[in-house]
């Protein structure tokens, strides 16, 4: 839960407009996705650490991500090992970590509702083709759901371990043990989603209707400067790749 939750602090990044932060993530994700060398990924990893540092996020968060997503790392590792290239495996693991770091950073320095607003505004030009408001809220709610989902998962796993589930037995039993965790989790998530939708409705939320905001989004000069720097950096990175 800690690895993806909002982390209140007064950093440079906390003060920035959510649209800028979305741009940073978009740029970062593009670089991570297109970068094919291990060294490049390592460099991007260091840049992400710099983002964490300037966002005043505790560096322990990096470790929590590795811990929380260890199964994903393990699966990636096994899949890549099949391909038989050790350098490539390391690169892909690092690439996965870089994606996770970016998401964790965004969620750490941006409050949920602010993020929803930023997303809503960024998608506005696409409103003719997309239900932008609904997408933004759906996305934001999924995020705010996440910590709750993890806490619930922890409780249910505890409940079933108390009933003797262990994964050292036969495949059939393993499968049954897995079902015993997945089914209750699915049911509780479904129930919660319904309850939250009702609570929002009762508090006067109408999808797509104009809303006020406790923090009106102001795109200031610093945001423009930062956006220019981010775009410049992406161009520089690609340019550097071309010439080296």
């Amino acid at each position: 839960m800690e690895s993806v939750a909002y982390y209140p602090a007064a950093s440079y990044w906390h003060r920035r407009d959510p649209r800028l932060k979305l741009l940073v993530v978009l740029a970062g994700a593009t670089l991570v996705f297109t970068e094919r060398s291990l060294g490049g990924q390592l460099l991007l990893f260091l840049l992400h650490i710099l983002l964490f540092y300037t966002g005043r996020l505790p560096l322990g968060r990096v470790w929590w991500i590795v811990k929380a997503f260890r199964w994903l790392f393990l699966i990636t590792f096994l899949l890549n090992l099949g391909a038989g290239n050790l350098g490539g495996t390391a690169r892909n693991l690092l690439r996965l970590l870089n994606f996770l770091l970016l998401s964790s950073w965004l969620l750490g320095v941006t409050e949920n509702l602010t993020l929803i607003e930023g997303l809503d505004l960024s998608l506005k030009p696409l409103r003719r083709w997309l239900p932008a408001g609904e997408i933004a809220v759906g996305f934001g709610l999924t995020l705010s759901f996440f910590p709750l989902f993890l806490a619930e998962a922890r409780e249910i796993i505890l409940a079933q371990r108390a009933r003797g589930v262990n994964f050292k037995t036969s495949w059939i039993k393993k499968l049954r043990g897995l079902l015993a965790m997945v089914i209750p989790l699915f049911m509780s998530t479904f129930r919660r989603a319904l309850a939250i939708a009702q609570a929002m409705e009762a508090r006067g939320y109408v999808p797509g209707a104009p809303r006020g905001s406790l923090y009106e989004l102001v795109w200031d000069k610093q945001d423009t400067v930062a956006a220019g720097l981010v775009l410049g950096f992406v161009l520089f990175w690609w340019g550097a790749k071309l010439f080296w």
């Binding site: 249910i156 108390a162 209750p184």
Partner: peptide, 26 residues
């Protein structure tokens, strides 16, 4: 054996009998 708070959160079987049998099966 521990029964957690609101233990019905862990229910997953199709019948009460199967639910109760889960522990002994394990």
């Amino acid at each position: 054996v521990l029964a957690i708070q609101e233990p019905q959160r862990g229910f997953f079987a199709a019948t009460v009998r199967e639910e109760v049998a889960f522990g002994p099966e394990n």
